[in-house]
C-alpha cells in the first residue's frame, strides 16, 4: 500500500472550451490534513469534485488509493465512494430527515446492521461532534455551525479513509469556526483518516493543517507547511495570507480607462 492516498500528476480539466485547471501536481499522505486555498473561482472546488469522482479529468493522472479516477467505471466509483466522505459547503443535510436519520442514512443504505447497532453507531458519531443530545431535531432547527457538525458526523458514519471538505468554514461565527477546525483535526487523527480541506479561511486553516497548496487561475502557485506559508514572500501568498486589497489579485475587474468611462478623457 502506497503511503500516498492521493497522487495527482499534471492534471488538467476544462468545462467545454474554458480551461479551469492547468497541470496540477498534488499529493496527500495518509493521516494528513491538506488545505487547498485560493480566491473564489480559482478552480479549487473543481479539484475537489475531481477527487470525488463527480467529474473526470481532461488529461493527466489522478489516483485515489491507487485507483485511476479517469478510467473508473460506475460500480467501482460507488465502491470507492463508500470509503470517502464529503462535507458540503452548507452541510447539505437531508431536510426531510431528523439529525439521527441523517447520520444513519449511509448505514441504512449500505449495511444490513440491526437497528440496535445502527443506534449505537449513530450515537457514537454524534457524540464525537458533541451533538448526541440533538439527535431528534430536524435540520431546519439547527444553527449553521451545528448543521456543519452533523454533516461531519454523517460523513464519518462509515469510517471513511478520506474526507473532502468544501468550504467547511464558510458563514460560521468565530466560535463555531474554531470548533469545526479542531474537530477536523481531531477526527482525522483519532480515526486515522486523511482530510482535504478546500477553503479560503487562511488563519483558521493554518492552525490545523499539515500542508497547504495555493491555487490561482488553475495552477498551483505555492505550497508548503503552514510555517513556510506564513513566512513566504511570494506576492500572491503574501496578499492572500494578510488579506491585502491590492497585489497580484487586483481589486478592480479588468475595465476600460476610468476617465474614459466617465467621459472625462475628451
Amino acid at each position: 500500500m502506497s503511503d500516498n492516498l492521493i497522487a495527482i500528476k499534471d492534471l488538467s480539466f476544462s468545462y467545454g472550451q474554458r480551461l479551469v485547471l492547468k497541470g496540477i501536481n498534488l499529493t496527500a499522505r495518509r493521516g494528513q490534513v491538506i488545505a487547498i486555498m485560493g480566491n473564489s473561482g480559482c478552480g479549487k472546488t473543481t479539484l475537489l469534485r475531481l477527487i470525488g469522482g463527480a467529474m473526470k479529468p481532461t488529461s493527466g493522472s489522478l489516483k485515489v488509493d491507487g485507483i485511476e479516477m479517469g478510467q473508473i467505471d460506475q460500480v467501482s466509483l460507488y465502491q470507492l465512494r463508500r470509503r470517502m466522505g464529503m462535507l458540503f459547503q452548507f452541510g447539505a443535510l437531508f431536510t426531510d430527515m431528523s439529525v439521527f436519520e441523517n447520520v444513519a442514512f449511509q448505514l441504512r443504505e449500505h449495511t444490513d446492521l440491526p437497528e440496535a447497532m445502527i443506534r449505537d453507531l449513530v450515537f457514537m458519531k454524534l457524540n464525537a461532534v458533541g451533538l448526541r443530545g440533538a439527535h431528534e431535531l430536524m435540520p431546519s432547527e439547527l444553527s449553521g455551525g451545528m448543521a456543519r457538525r452533523v454533516a461531519l458526523a454523517r460523513s464519518i458514519s462509515l469510517d471513511p479513509m478520506l474526507i473532502l471538505y468544501d468550504e467547511p468554514f464558510a458563514g460560521l461565527d468565530p466560535i463555531s469556526l474554531g470548533v469545526t477546525g479542531n474537530l477536523i483535526r481531531r477526527l482525522t487523527d483519532t480515526l486515522g483518516m486523511t482530510s482535504i480541506v478546500v477553503t479560503h479561511d487562511v488563519q483558521e486553516s493554518l492552525k490545523m493543517v499539515d500542508y497547504v497548496y495555493f491555487v490561482s487561475e488553475g495552477v498551483i502557485v505555492a505550497e508548503g507547511t503552514p510555517a513556510e506559508i506564513k513566512a513566504s514572500q511570494l506576492p500572491y501568498v503574501h496578499q492572500f495570507v494578510h488579506g491585502e486589497e491590492n497585489g497580484p489579485v487586483p481589486f478592480h475587474f479588468p475595465a476600460a480607462d476610468y476617465a474614459a468611462d466617465l467621459g472625462l478623457a475628451a
Binding site: L77, Y78, F90, Q106
Partner: peptide, 12 residues
C-alpha cells in the same frame, strides 16, 4: 442545497 450531490458522494 447539494443534497442530491451529497447522496451521490455517499454512493447512493
Amino acid at each position: 442545497t447539494e443534497q442530491i450531490a451529497a447522496m451521490e458522494m455517499m454512493a447512493v
